[in-house]
């Protein structure tokens, strides 16, 4: 007994040590965000700030139009989440439950997408958005204007449906009891009614999982906003951070304060909904 107890508490110590190592960069970020530049540059190092400068956060947010960046990131994430929930769940349901010619071929073509990361198609996708006819001052040939460059549409459109979302929803709906559909069909309910009134209300777990997956990837995305936007007005929080850094002398305390604020929404979301984060990873790959 004693030996077992001893090894269990040793494991706990090891676990806490690992946790500390993993969290250390975040702790460093937070303490740095509260220091003065003088303290950061001083030759003697102390981990805990001598004076806690909470006003660093307000100061950091005044460097650039951060309210606008947060607003942009929030709007883009919200629109992406809403549309991807609707589109992916509809397609997932059809692939899981309905019978129609070509279903398997279509589904196979959806699976192929997992092997085509967006980085391999970023140039043609960018050109498609830029040359989109009749938007952003473009004529029917897609010339003359900017297309979807610097627009929410350009940031959202490519991401509102995709392999992972469709696949995730399909896997979830496959495990629904068929008796549900059959009972509803006997009552004369149409397929659309069965989906919207029976399936959707029962799929909160998968919708939450997908919403979190999409919100995280959109909020955190850097490459696509980097390519699609070039005005301050359309900048997202991730771009805001990189601009901060490229200024002549890096004010580490302010940069770390801004980083903390950019990281915070997702960390809070993660702490509140850990279960769904884990679910997303597990259902996309493993059964």
């Amino acid at each position: 007994m004693r030996i077992k107890f001893g090894s269990a508490s040793l494991s706990t110590v090891v676990l806490l040590l690992i946790s500390l190592i993993m969290l250390f960069p975040f702790l460093l970020m937070i303490v740095t965000s509260l220091k003065t530049m003088g303290e950061i540059q001083s030759p003697t190092f102390s981990f805990i700030p001598k004076k806690w400068l909470f006003e660093n956060y307000a100061l950091a947010m005044s460097r650039g139009d951060w309210l606008r960046y947060f607003y942009n990131s929030f709007v883009v994430s919200a629109i992406t989440v809403i549309f991807s929930l609707i589109f992916n769940s509809m397609a997932g349901y059809a692939f899981a439950r309905l019978r129609f010619p070509g279903r398997n071929v279509l589904f196979f073509s959806v699976l192929i997408g997992i092997m085509v990361p967006p980085q391999t198609t970023m140039i043609p996708t960018f050109l498609m958005m830029k040359l989109f006819p009749f938007v952003g001052g473009n004529n029917w040939q897609g010339a003359g204007g900017f297309g979807f460059i610097n627009s929410y549409m350009g940031l959202v459109l490519p991401f509102i449906a995709g392999s992972f979302g469709i696949f995730m929803c399909r896997q979830y709906f496959l495990n629904f009891p068929r008796a549900l559909d059959e009972a509803a069909q006997i009552d004369g309910a149409s397929i659309y009614r069965i989906f919207f009134q029976i399936y959707l209300p029962l799929s909160k777990p998968i919708l939450a999982t997908l919403a979190i997956f999409k919100a995280t990837s959109t909020w955190n995305d850097y490459m696509w906003p980097l390519i699609m936007t070039n005005t301050e007005k359309m900048r997202t929080v991730q771009l805001g951070l990189t601009i901060f850094r490229s200024e002549t002398t890096v004010e580490w305390n302010l940069l770390m304060a801004a980083t903390t604020l950019v990281v915070l929404p997702l960390v809070l979301l993660f702490l509140a909904a850990q279960k769904y984060f884990v679910q997303g990873i597990v259902t996309t790959g493993l059964k």
Binding site: L23, R245, V262, L266
Partner: peptide, 19 residues
């Protein structure tokens, strides 16, 4: 704690490690 870095953006993570 082990999973938190994974929900953090690559940009934010890069800023921290630059430091």
């Amino acid at each position: 704690s082990i999973y938190v870095p994974n929900v953090t953006s690559m940009v934010a993570v890069s800023m921290i490690w630059l430091w």
